[in-house]
């Protein structure tokens, strides 16, 4: 107990940006998929879900990190879950108070943030080992990355499924909405397409790096 971490890496910009893209919780680590697919039928819902998740993620990681030297190893997962559940209950009541309409749209998925593996995963893998400031910053990055992914999905689904974006009509009224995009299958398919696109871009980039490395080598010989 109370032994300071020996290998405390310095606080850099990487701590924050890793969650945004390089280790994006949704596209790279495939964590917390349930809310990603369930509530992204519009941008508004995605933003609300993202904000709620950021709040829970940052608060619970801050508390876990602050208490990391006091939590016995054997019961740590239970403790984390209880900490997370407390903050989720808070968010649940806050959203109910602020906008009942939004609360009804998101339904049980606010409460289901408790079992979002992203939050427990970050508490176990990062906050329980790192300092308070770093945990908060990393949680913020991860949360923003999660929200980014939610909005990327929600944007495509709302645009194609309703011809709108954030409630504003984008396509003319002649546009026949692709209802399937708002329904469950659309969620799976849009996420699949995004993953394919990201894989394609990553592959192109990897090839480019290999080619660039190869060119000076060839000219030298």
């Amino acid at each position: 107990m109370a032994t300071p971490n020996k290998k405390e890496t310095p606080l850099t910009m990487d701590v924050f940006t890793a969650g945004l893209w390089k280790e994006n919780p949704v596209f790279v680590m495939m964590l917390g998929l349930c809310p990603v697919l369930a509530v992204t039928n519009s941008v508004e819902n995605s933003l609300a879900m993202g904000a709620a998740s950021i709040f829970v993620l940052v608060c619970s990681n801050a508390l876990v990190s602050a208490l990391r030297n006091f939590i016995p190893k054997q019961v740590r997962i239970t403790t984390y879950i209880i900490i997370i559940a407390t903050f989720v209950t808070l968010v649940d009541y806050i959203i109910q108070a602020v906008s009942l309409d939004l609360y009804n749209k998101l339904g049980a998925f606010i409460q289901l943030i408790v079992v979002n593996c992203l939050i427990l995963g970050r508490a176990e893998a990062y906050a329980s080992k790192n300092s308070f400031t770093k945990s908060v910053i990393s949680a913020l990055g991860m949360g923003l990355g999660f929200t980014l992914a939610l909005v990327m999905l929600g944007g495509v689904r709302e645009l194609l499924g309703a011809g709108q974006l954030l409630g504003y009509q984008i396509f003319s009224t002649n546009f026949e909405p692709w209802i399937v995009m708002i329904l469950p299958p659309g969620g799976f398919i849009v996420l699949g397409v995004w993953l394919l696109l990201i894989n394609y871009v990553e592959e192109q980039r990897a090839e480019k790096i290999i080619n660039e490395d190869a060119v000076p080598h060839n000219t030298a010989s």
Binding site: M30, F188, I189, L191, G192, V193, L195, L196, N199, Y200, E203
Partner: peptide, 11 residues
């Protein structure tokens, strides 16, 4: 190659 990992499972 690009259908590796979860992309195709999602489809």
């Amino acid at each position: 190659n690009i259908t590796q990992a979860a992309a195709l499972s999602m489809m």
